[in-house]
Simulated assay, not measured.
Amino acid sequence: MDPIANIGQQFAAHNYKLTPQREAIVKVLLDNEEEHLSVEDVYMRVKNSYPHLGLATVYRTLELLCELHIVEKMNFGDGVARYDLRGTDHAHMHHHLICNVCGRLEEIKDDWLLDLERRLEREYGFNVTDHRLDFKGTFNTCKRHGCKGDRKDKAVS
């Protein structure tokens, strides 16, 4: 199914409308899925199409997308809230490797915690509905070559 149509259905299921402005914001997130955009990043990319769209509208839309579990709001320790689309192909949010030296971020798409979730349910009667795990450390390339801080977001399967 088309991602925009799927998101439109999620909006409708909660009695919200996917307005053209909201759709433009969603498209920016879809077009930049490998990046973890801040409110300002989204605003700068969407204002070309909607020059009268305000920063507050972008912020409110991103918060609504979080409320509807379409995006995940995250902070990687730099004090900036970033937004990441939740994949429809996974029940949980993906995980991240965050380099303390250069700030590079890599995504881990595989869900390595399914066995732990089953154990939590079996041993504690606790049903995990979601989880997110961020690993902070240093990539070997930063240790060896002294990274210059070139932040790049990548996905790891």
Rank of each mutant, 00 (worst) to 15 (best):
D2I: 02
D2G: 12
D2E: 08
D2L: 06
I4S: 05
N6I: 01
F11D: 11
N15V: 07
Y16S: 03
T19F: 10
P20N: 02
E33A: 14
H36N: 13
D41A: 11
Y43I: 07
N48Q: 11
S49D: 10
P51Y: 02
P51E: 01
L53M: 08
L53C: 05
G54P: 01
A56K: 15
V58R: 13
Y59K: 14
C66D: 11
E67S: 08
L68R: 03
V71Q: 05
E72K: 15
G77Y: 03
G79W: 05
A81E: 13
R82S: 01
D84K: 15
D84P: 01
L85H: 08
G87W: 11
H92K: 11
H95T: 04
H96L: 01
H96V: 00
I98S: 00
C99R: 00
E106M: 11
I108E: 11
K109R: 11
L113K: 13
R119K: 14
G125W: 12
N127R: 14
T129W: 00
R132S: 10
L133P: 00
F135E: 00
K136Y: 15
N140E: 10
G146C: 02
C147S: 14
C147W: 10
D150E: 09
R151C: 01
A155C: 07
A155N: 04
A155T: 12
